[in-house]
């Protein structure tokens, strides 16, 4: 279909192929396609969606059907139980053309095998957004390559892709899903909040901003004085004007009964601590 001169992007997204899109709104499908392109991926598109995307198609970044000059190789995750690195190395030595590896099966094992393939020099590999199919997880692989210096990737576009996939599939992405989960940068542990305030990478693998998110300090039974002080400062209050130790203790006690101490409960505890506020 296409003649390609530029190097193949390391990741080929197969979310649109793996997702049932028949009942999805066309604009949602287009939004997903464009979000995946914005990440910096090659995007595999099933033939049935081509008419829908024609006006917006980016041919050099879109795979459809058999691609001239590209070899596709599919394996399943049982390879994880064998000497998979030796097999990948042998394949790469013998293969004379760029190959897109597709790993099918348990998503964690598929992600690990795909990461190893790319680490050993594989040209490209297939992955999809969570829930779209039993294949390697796209977002963690984007982050792994990004952390290793793959500057062509733009992880900040991941939340938009995740939102678009939810709109297409109707399936919510779990809040703690690796990388695109909305709550992965929530933190409450006293030690961890204190550490993150001193060094933003002490207890997180990458800054929330790198994937278009923000850190949220949650107050609960694990909270320490650093966390409480940070939340007070966010409300333009001076922590030095309150008995921080006593306030933290009350937050912990309340957290042991209700889980999260929400904003209203926090405000009530502040008023108890200093009625003039």
């Amino acid at each position: 279909m296409l003649k390609r001169k530029a190097p193949l992007p390391r990741l080929t997204d197969v979310t649109l192929t793996a997702t049932q899109t028949e009942t999805a709104a066309p604009d949602a499908v287009l939004r997903l396609y464009q979000a995946l392109l914005a990440i910096g991926l090659m995007v595999q598109v099933p033939a049935r969606l081509l008419p829908l995307l024609t006006a917006h198609l980016v041919p050099e970044r879109t795979l459809c059907g058999d691609e001239a000059g590209l070899r596709h190789h599919t394996i399943d995750t049982t390879l994880f139980y064998q000497a998979y690195e030796a097999q990948f190395s042998q394949f790469l030595r013998q293969s004379g053309q760029p190959t897109v590896l597709h790993v099918k099966g348990d998503p964690q094992l598929a992600t690990a095998l795909t990461a190893s393939w790319l680490h050993l020099g594989g040209a490209s590999a297939a992955a999809c957004l969570p829930g779209a199919g039993r294949c390697a997880a796209l977002a963690p692989l984007v982050m792994l390559l990004f952390l290793q210096g793959e500057t062509a990737l733009n992880p900040r576009a991941l939340p938009e892709a995740a939102d678009a996939w939810e709109a297409v599939s109707g399936i919510p992405i779990p809040a703690h899903q690796p990388v695109p989960g909305k709550n992965i940068f929530d933190v409450s542990s006293g030690v961890h909040v204190d550490g993150l305030i001193k060094d933003s990478l002490s207890y997180e693998p990458f800054p929330p901003e790198a994937v278009g998110r923000e850190r949220r300090i949650v107050l609960d039974q694990h909270s320490g004085q650093s966390a409480v002080a940070a939340r007070l400062r966010a409300l333009q209050l001076d922590p030095g004007t309150l008995d921080l130790q006593a306030l933290t203790q009350r937050i912990r006690e309340q957290g042991r009964t209700c889980g999260t101490v929400d904003e209203a409960a926090f405000a009530a505890l502040i008023r108890q601590a200093q009625p003039s506020l």
Partner: peptide, 13 residues
Amino acid sequence: HNDLGMAVPVAIE
């Protein structure tokens, strides 16, 4: 930890 979605295979390895 599962930040890169590989906590299980990393532990197995």
